[in-house]
Design a protein around this nucleic acid. Structure first.
Lengths: 147, 147
DNA sequence: CATAATAGTTGCAGATATCAACTAATTATT
DNA sequence: AATAATTAGTTGATATCTGCAACTATTATG
């Protein structure tokens, strides 16, 4: 019973650590390049990972943040030319958030670092463990989706 | 290869969702009670979970934040009478962070909610899957500890 | 004793967050 | 078709959290 609580807290701790490490490595890489904050990167990442084109409101829901928060993050990403607002012809209230070439390049570079770190972390795990882990994560994705 | 990246991002997403849900349930509970922010709760949680008594500097290291950040979070927790600074007799530079009765009560209440949500999320998983998951998490704890 | 190192504090500046009030565009209602 | 309601986005105000650098107080070291 208590084990499961601590597991969650452990998970929180390692996620924090992993993203901290990722940010550190990413910052190091981007010394003279585009400086991007964790939140900005998180939003960019989310936009990239969505199946369909999204508008600001979608991202507010997906990220679980206020629409004005998203708006300001979008502003900063647009200033850095990582994404671009494109007005929907059919409904001019909507701004589609399109990732620019630079944005994709930044994400790719980020993904390489993620990849590298993941390999480091996975060392010593066998295939079946990884599969079960992946299965459980997917299970939790579904369960949290129901919340 | 790519699978593992997305696994991390998936994990990040579910953690975000879980803590969001936890905060929501916790806020609902604490309508007239102590209002506490996510960061404050996170710090209180960490202090409670440590084996030994800690000082501010320890928490800065554990949480991976600047000591001044911790200091201010401690201030807000102390204002709410959830923790108390106690000067070390042998080294008067050090403030031990002692959790008050109220602090423990708040944490217990929080843990109950965590517990409840964990049970909801785990429904449908068999024992062996949970064990493997736990094992992998522990593996990652060790690996991230080496970073 | 003078100097280093350590723990904590304060001031400053920047990023993020939410809330509420607002505009503009679209849809629904009468 | 005119009016009202809804939706998407924006803005202003305010609060929280963050790190950095400079500072104080205390302890350790030479």
């Amino acid at each position: 019973m208590e084990t499961q609580n601590f597991l969650l807290l452990k998970l929180a701790k390692i996620m924090h650590k992993v993203f901290q490490e990722l940010k550190k490595r990413f910052d190091k890489l981007n010394d003279e390049e585009i400086k991007i904050s964790t939140e900005q990167l998180g939003l960019l990442r989310s936009i990239c990972l969505e199946e369909d084109d999204v508008i600001q409101k979608d991202m507010a829901e997906i990220m679980g943040k206020d629409k004005s928060s998203i708006l300001r993050l979008i502003n900063s990403l647009e200033e850095k030319d990582l994404i671009r607002r494109v007005v929907d012809n059919k409904d001019r209230r909507k701004n589609y958030l399109m990732v620019t070439k630079t944005g994709h390049r930044v994400m790719e570079r980020y993904m390489l670092i993620v990849n590298e770190l993941m390999l480091e972390i996975q060392q010593g795990l066998n295939k079946s463990d990884k599969e079960v882990f992946s299965k459980v994560v997917n299970h939790i994705v579904i369960k949290t989706g129901e919340l």
